[in-house]
């Protein structure tokens, strides 16, 4: 089943395509962009991780001390597993919360309502993520809107800020609209005749969702999850401003490392570990998304 492969065209077909000068010309800008702004900086980051810092100045060299120091610190591994866990939970929660919304927009509402919903899902991105995150403090603090409402019914106050819950709210603010849109595009491309066929063959509603619709829309669902993981794994704003940096994630550790002693090379070690982790997760996820059903 490949109902929505159109979401990401370009799967290699049975016949190898010839690279033409025309195609090469049009694809060059992105290649150049990636070289200048991803590959070269990445190489520099790796080189930087072997430099030393003397008197707050980076000194070019080749010393593995930064790798040894960071890998021997318990707090580095604590932060690593925590960040992985936070991003994992955020990915699961975001995907689960987004799906019913995307499903309803794809199958249960009129095209007009769907267009308006898409518009409102995009509107939050007009405002800075930092400002959106800060504004959550009005809702989440001890004297904030939520606790005031809870107080009206004799509940609370609840600790909603400076903990993982606060961080999760920030992650959802960052990712939920995007994931809904990605899932919606995928679900909207599901071939309706296959759903009808499933019903005609006696497949119940819930079974149709899990055995027909989700497999057909899996590329969008997995891509949404991957985006959530990538964005939350590297996010600094939510764990700092809503989680109270307590305990810190890897991105906060990078800030801490550079802030005191100007240890950019050690921060580079943390960054490389993050990049490697993300690349591994991304390749595994994309492979899963495009894997054919047997």
């Amino acid at each position: 089943m490949s109902g929505n492969d159109t979401l990401l065209p370009g799967r290699p077909g049975p016949q190898r395509r010839q690279v033409t000068l025309y195609g090469l010309t049009w694809s060059m800008p992105i290649v150049i962009w990636q070289l200048i702004f991803f590959v070269f900086p990445l190489i520099f980051l790796v080189v930087l991780s072997f430099w030393l810092v003397k008197n707050y100045r980076m000194v070019p060299g080749f010393d593995t001390i930064n790798w040894v120091k960071m890998f021997s610190k318990g707090y580095f591994w604590d932060a690593y597993w925590r960040t992985l866990g936070y991003a994992g939970v955020a990915t699961i929660v975001t995907s689960i919360l987004a799906f019913p919304c995307a499903f309803a927009l794809a199958f249960k509402v009129s095209p007009k309502v769907r267009r308006w919903a898409l518009f409102f899902l995009i509107v939050p991105f007009f405002t800075s993520y930092l400002v959106r995150t800060y504004s959550w403090q009005i809702f989440l603090n001890d004297n904030g809107i939520f606790n005031t409402l809870f107080a009206f019914v004799g509940l609370g106050p609840f600790q909603l800020l400076n903990n993982f819950f606060g961080t999760l709210v920030g992650y959802l603010t960052l990712c939920l609209p995007l994931v809904v849109v990605l899932q919606l595009i995928s679900l909207a491309n599901v071939d309706r005749t296959l759903i009808e066929a499933a019903h005609n063959l006696g497949c119940g509603r819930l079974r149709t969702v899990f055995q027909v619709i989700i497999p057909l829309a899996k590329i969008g669902i997995i891509l949404g999850a991957v985006f959530t993981f990538i964005l939350t794994f590297g996010d600094f704003v939510s764990p700092y401003y809503l989680g109270g940096s307590k305990p810190p994630t890897l991105s906060i550790l990078i800030i801490d490392t550079t802030k005191s002693g100007q240890q950019w090379p050690r921060a580079a070690v943390v960054a490389i570990v993050m990049i490697v982790t993300l690349l591994t997760i991304m390749f595994a996820s994309v492979a899963a998304a495009y894997r054919k059903r047997t």
Binding site: K73, G74, Y75, D78, A79, S245, K246, P247, P248, I252, L253, D256, T257, S260, G261, Q263
Partner: peptide, 13 residues
């Protein structure tokens, strides 16, 4: 300074 900074990171974690 590194000792103090390292400890601060440990404390936060």
């Amino acid at each position: 300074l590194e000792d103090w900074n390292d400890f601060w990171s440990e404390y936060k974690n």
